[in-house]
Design a protein around this nucleic acid. Structure first.
Lengths: 219, 219
DNA sequence: CGAGTTTTTGAAGGACATCAACGTCTGTGG
DNA sequence: CCACAGACGTTGATGTCCTTCAAAAACTCG
């Protein structure tokens, strides 16, 4: 249903975001567009921090329905598990560079490098907050509201004021917002007609022309 | 839209679940049915561990739409925040006893009592996993599937094999599953007719008569 | 340029929501 | 103990937002 896109595009290594406040560095790794960083059920040997690019983490139901629980942008940490196995899949939305940390070092890191431990705690708590926020979106918002929230959030996380370059395609957005690709497309078209946004670069760039209106939809 | 239920019912203090693997204990507190433990936006001075009873944590949209992100049962930890304020509201679904920990002790606890710190980490990671699982439910499951998942999960967490005593009312279930109260009711009725469950005790007890079928719906 | 992929648009249908009324349970006071 | 009021839950009729099915348009990249 959701075939993994072809390997393609080897990735160049861009400006590095290094680990803050600690000396212990992870291993750097690159992944091409569509490649899997780890799969649901696989051993959770490492956890990751995005250096550049975008990662999606998702879960699948037996019949192929997919939920993308988050897109991870540079600086974000993901892949930490309480059990031995990964509970979701992580894939590169676009060419990605990550810093990988051994999970086994996790506990010892916590003790030896309190600063690092706190940073991890903080990023976990942030993930949790995002998850909570996203549950409101999935459970209680309309398609328009979902889209508005998504665009505003992305703009903020990408440090863009009113122009978002989408790293992901419509299918990904749909599976993130709990919609179909058609509804995503239609909702965007409606927003264009309503003057809330403008589409550019083959729909991959979105200009937030009426941010106030979008924020109102954000409820 | 969602009026907080009347105070009522003062709570008796039942068998205690104490903090495992550490000497540092929190402060014990009781809350009556419907009472607020803390509110969205309030200072996050404490975080909590449920001793007995059931707590719901929820978020509200400006127009009153509500999303209950989780029900917390005995042993569960909730209320940890990365920022200074609570990002959601916590209320007692039924009379509740909790153990409250000062958030300010959080960091020091982490250093002084590694066991406690790890336990916290683990419970945060568990929350995160539950959140991910719940996002799949909210974004991609049908009403029937949502209900099946909810019932099976609750049965497991309550250590019940095939009989669930619901601590919460239909409205809470609806706001947890991203449905309306009517759909919750209708879905239960359908399941009764299909022989998957039986209702007892004024609909507050649910007997899982065909667990296999429910698990199939659980996808 | 042309094949494949991604996105958009259209028409029709369905799952769930909304609006409305009725039934049932709980607890309180006569 | 029973009656009654208010809360909670169920059921019915109707509506709508989003999905599904289908096809065309736009874009990508060899």
């Amino acid at each position: 249903m959701q075939p993994f896109t072809s390997p393609a595009t080897a990735s160049r290594i861009p400006a590095a975001v290094v680990l803050r406040g600690t000396s212990s560095a992870g291993t750097r790794r690159s992944f091409g567009k569509g490649n899997e960083l780890f799969g649901e059920g696989g051993a959770a040997e490492y956890f990751y921090k995005v250096v550049s690019g975008t990662v999606r983490t998702c879960k699948l139901l037996s019949d192929g329905r997919r939920q993308i629980d988050a897109f991870h942008l540079p600086g974000d940490v993901f892949g930490l598990e309480s059990g031995a196995d990964h509970r979701f899949t992580a894939e590169a939305v676009e060419p990605v560079v990550v810093e990988a940390y051994r999970r086994s070092h996790f506990t010892s890191l916590l003790h030896d490098d309190p600063a690092f431990g706190e940073q991890l705690m903080a990023s976990m708590l942030q993930s949790l907050e995002r998850a909570h926020e996203h549950m409101v979106l999935l459970g209680r918002k309309t398609a328009q509201e979902k889209m508005a929230t998504f665009l505003l959030d992305l703009a903020e996380r990408l440090d863009r004021d009113d122009r978002v370059e989408l790293p992901m395609q419509r299918t990904d957005i749909a599976d993130h917002l709990g919609l179909t690709i058609e509804t995503v497309s239609r909702t965007l078209t409606q927003m264009v007609r309503a003057g809330l946004i403008k589409l550019a670069a083959a729909g991959r760039t979105i200009i937030l022309s009426d941010k106030a209106a979008l924020e109102q939809l954000n409820a």
